[in-house]
Design a protein around this nucleic acid. Structure first.
Lengths: 219, 219
DNA sequence: TTTGACTACCGTAAAAATACCCTGGCAAAA
DNA sequence: TTTTGCCAGGGTATTTTTACGGTAGTCAAA
């Protein structure tokens, strides 16, 4: 049922031990060919450009410094449309799933998964072009159709808002954050309210949890 | 400089892909012998009891369901005193480091580390009995001596407080948390203030971040 | 039995966070 | 050029959070 061609892979994850571990694990499978590893989106771009061989699937972490999983996935979709992205995340978070799928990922798996599940997912992707599991349900996919405008605008978190989001995970008050960011307290109010509206969140706590789950905040 | 005996290892991490990956990676080294893997402290206990062979080093994650890294490490120290625990964590968090060391870990490394660093750390542990790096500094170790009473009391988070801490990471207000916990709003105020005092934290945000870093809150 | 720890509760007041209204500059895109 | 989005700022009001002062029952350890 599988093709006789090896599946060519790329790994993107900033946790070196995890990345190297997965690479070692996957190299034990004859039907897989791990072409390269990258610690973030920037490295990934270089690797993809350097390889002449077509890369079938990229296992992509979400939380990474420099260029995260969303941006990296979108970039791949634009520049290497034949390369499929399978998201690998720590968290079962609906927003993260939606965002990755919207960026162009064809599947979403947890790092708790078993190696055999991962292998099966990759085979499915090679056959059907996508992988649907209990995390990626029909409901989610249909919601993707509708929210195109909603979600697209909601995804655009600006630089200042991101900076503000970082400060939200500290014990600084908004007034102190304003001082740290060199703006008026009213302005940080705007950042907050803008993020609340975009992400459908109602409290600073919610922002922090969202930021951590989506790796916008590094602890 | 290394002994000619293989270092026997056990892995404890709830993320299957990471655990299996690390296992595969470490099995490539001749001087290592990975005896078993476990997804949490309970499994670890069973594995340790089942193996006659002495386990030299256990690579231990902190955040795990059922029985976390702190409890597991303390249990090993009590029941298998010759087995060393090397903590493997996602986070560079001083409190987590201190707690793991206090529980009996002989070293603390990040999952960002390179495999060669991990190997070196394990060799160091076999030679000297402990591994000190930039995360585990002399200052930290000396603070361990002093805070025995401070930390011990400060560590005692009660069941209700822990439950409350979970709710803190949601978008519920304290009043709503009180309703969810079936107590008066005043009572959750006490939980909060008690935690603030114990952990030297001043805001709900701080509680949430502390809880996540120390795996008291599961996202 | 006394002590300490945990649980649960109450009142008051100040500080912080949140919601909703608004203006204007500036740069990039249409 | 007009529009759009981001950035920065302002006013007002309410809700929530936080701080600080207490009391009391239970249960286990000293």
């Amino acid at each position: 049922m599988k093709g006789d061609k090896k599946i060519t892979l790329g790994l993107v994850d900033d946790h070196t031990l995890f990345r190297r571990g997965i690479a070692s694990l996957l190299r034990e499978f004859d039907e897989l060919d791990v072409l390269f590893e990258a610690a973030n989106g920037i490295e990934l771009q270089a690797q993809l450009k350097a390889h002449e061989k077509q890369v079938d699937i990229i296992l992509m972490d979400i939380s990474m410094p420099k260029m995260n999983g969303y941006e990296s996935t979108a970039w791949i979709k634009d520049n290497f449309p034949h390369t499929k992205v399978l998201a690998l995340s720590m968290f079962e978070d609906e927003k993260a799933i939606i965002n990755m799928l919207k960026a162009g990922a064809v599947g979403y798996m947890l790092k708790e998964s078993r190696p055999s599940d991962l292998l099966m997912a990759m085979n499915t992707i090679m056959e059907k072009g996508f992988y649907i599991n209990e995390l990626v349900t029909g409901r989610l996919l249909s919601s993707l159709q509708h929210d195109k405008q909603t979600q697209q605008t909601s995804l655009k978190i600006t630089e200042r808002e991101l900076e503000f989001l970082q400060y939200c995970s500290t014990e600084l008050t908004y007034k102190e954050i304003a001082a740290a960011m060199n703006v008026s307290p009213r302005t940080v109010d705007n950042y907050r309210e803008s993020l609340f509206a975009k992400l459908n969140i109602k409290s600073r706590t919610g922002l922090v949890v969202y930021g951590i789950k989506n790796d916008l905040i590094k602890l």
